[in-house]
């Protein structure tokens, strides 16, 4: 476990006090929201977030590799999900208790359904959906405007509402 914790975040990032951040973490210049009780642990290598991500409670994002784990923009990590992997693109949704494990890389606009798991060394193409009890795969359509606007509104809501009820972490804002 790396002993030093070094966090860089954009000025619009909302990080709740109970969020557990360890290691070298960079959060891009956008409206990323980290709910209370989420864990981002950069154990061996750093974790780099893009803009506009939502990380909900009990979500765990872990980097066991020395290479940086690069996560793109507009991703949603729902309650209780577990994420390792080598890289994540943009506009993905990891649903409640989804697991992204091993050396998996995720493209853009993918969905890992509730309680679904990726293979250990998978390369998820764009628009892949993992669903059901057998973790079946299918391809979905490109993301439409309604979904994009929902995500933006969700972020706006959280940015307004979370500081009213939660204590926020003060982070150095020098990205």
């Amino acid at each position: 476990m790396s002993s030093r914790t070094k966090i860089k975040a954009g000025p619009k990032t909302v990080v709740c006090q109970e969020a557990d951040l360890r290691g070298e973490i960079t959060i891009g210049n956008g409206r990323t929201v980290l709910h209370p009780r989420c864990r981002v642990v950069a154990e061996a290598g750093p974790i780099v977030f893009g803009a506009n991500n939502i990380i909900e409670e009990n979500a765990v994002i872990f980097n066991k590799n020395t290479a940086p784990l690069v996560i793109g923009d507009d991703n949603v990590f729902e309650v209780g999900c577990y994420v390792e992997g080598l890289g994540i693109g943009n506009r993905n949704v990891i649903e409640a208790r989804g697991r992204l494990i091993g050396t998996t890389t995720v493209g853009n606009n993918c969905v890992i359904g509730s309680a679904c798991t990726t293979d250990l060394h998978e390369k998820m193409e764009d628009n892949t959906v993992i669903y059901g009890s057998d973790c079946s795969r299918r391809t979905q359509e490109e993301r439409n405007a309604a979904q994009a606007s929902l995500h933006l509104r969700h972020l706006e809501y959280l940015r307004e509402m979370l500081p009213k009820y939660n204590h926020l972490k003060q982070l150095p804002t020098d990205v």
Binding site: E56, E57, N58, V79, S149, L150, R153, H154, E156, Y157
Partner: peptide, 13 residues
């Protein structure tokens, strides 16, 4: 974990 559900209704999230 108990968390309320969300949606957009008439354009309001």
């Amino acid at each position: 974990i108990i968390r309320p559900p969300y949606k957009t209704y008439k354009g309001i999230f």
